[in-house]
Nucleic acid binder design. Structure first.
Lengths: 161, 161
DNA sequence: AAGTGAAATGTTATACTATATCAAGACGAA
DNA sequence: TTCGTCTTGATATAGTATAACATTTCACTT
């Protein structure tokens, strides 16, 4: 499964699946998926798009959750550092991970300039040119950001024909 | 030259070279490297590190330049969109391009977590896996962001031995 | 040389993104 | 139960970026 997902999918299954996966990973690793963290992940999965921290905050706020910025940023830090969500640096926004089951991975994001959709793909498993170049220069990579901006199949002129 | 530059170099030549290159490109393409734009580029080249917009602003301010944020952001927009500088998304910071002569290129940045140095490499010219993956899904890439964070040769424990 | 339109700059205000700090509560382990 | 740690609550503030509009500069035409 290294396909990039612009297609339709069963979203209600996708939501419950993502939450279940997160719960399993957390219980397996002794992490605490607390109420607030869980709710933030839920929001990200439900909306299924890149959201700014303050977008999420607004949703929480409507629900009577304590709704100060640190609440959201803490939850996001937990989710991102444990692989349940990713930060899109180019957008200063966050998305739920498309396949949290798979543990550590090096995601690649395709961001549509027109409709804003963000799709997550997998970085190649074989040693990338980036890795190679870095290694040659003696640099040790810990994390990578790979993001591409352009037009998704639906928004490409003449596309989706 | 697709080496990643952590080595030493003749910095005064590097500065004048970068400025000359920018002037040549501008005159060739009918772009205006105005005083403020030129000064911002100069600062970036001189400092030779990733700088926040407000770092640059502080330098301008000490020189009696009009020093409101839009001044810097406009200059940066010009420099970035014409390839004289790049934005490091992960840091919300800007660096002078290491090889502005080479026109459009897809840079790769290696960011050291320890000392903050940012080195620019070239993304591979041959069709990358990213391009390939995107193409298969019908996505048309316009720009890419590739950034890696880790430890540079100098900061790697046991490195530079 | 004067007129014109487009690009660039000056300036003020404000929006958006993120973290520091410290007090209080919740939870598991001994 | 007590301890230590992780998590949350709450206030304040730091850091990044753009909107909007007036004014100037510049290249080009007449």
């Amino acid at each position: 499964m290294s396909e990039i997902g612009f297609g339709k999918h069963d979203h209600s299954a996708c939501i419950s699946g993502a939450l279940e996966a997160a719960e399993q990973v957390c219980s397996a690793q002794g992490l605490r998926l607390t109420k607030g963290r869980r709710r933030v992940l839920e929001i990200l999965v439900q909306e299924h798009r890149a959201m700014g921290a303050y977008d999420i905050l607004a949703v929480l706020s409507d629900e009577g959750f304590g709704a100060q910025p640190p609440v959201v940023y803490r939850a996001l830090e937990f989710l991102v550092s444990n692989g349940f969500a990713h930060k899109i640096e180019k957008l200063n926004a966050y998305v739920a991970c498309s396949h949290p089951q798979e543990g550590d991975h090096a995601p690649v994001f395709l961001i549509c300039k027109s409709c804003g959709i963000v799709a997550e793909g997998d970085a190649p498993k074989r040693k990338s040119d980036l890795q190679q170049q870095a290694q040659e220069s003696g640099f040790v990579i810990e994390t990578t950001v790979m993001e591409a901006e352009g037009l998704c199949p639906t928004c490409v002129p003449g596309g989706e024909a």
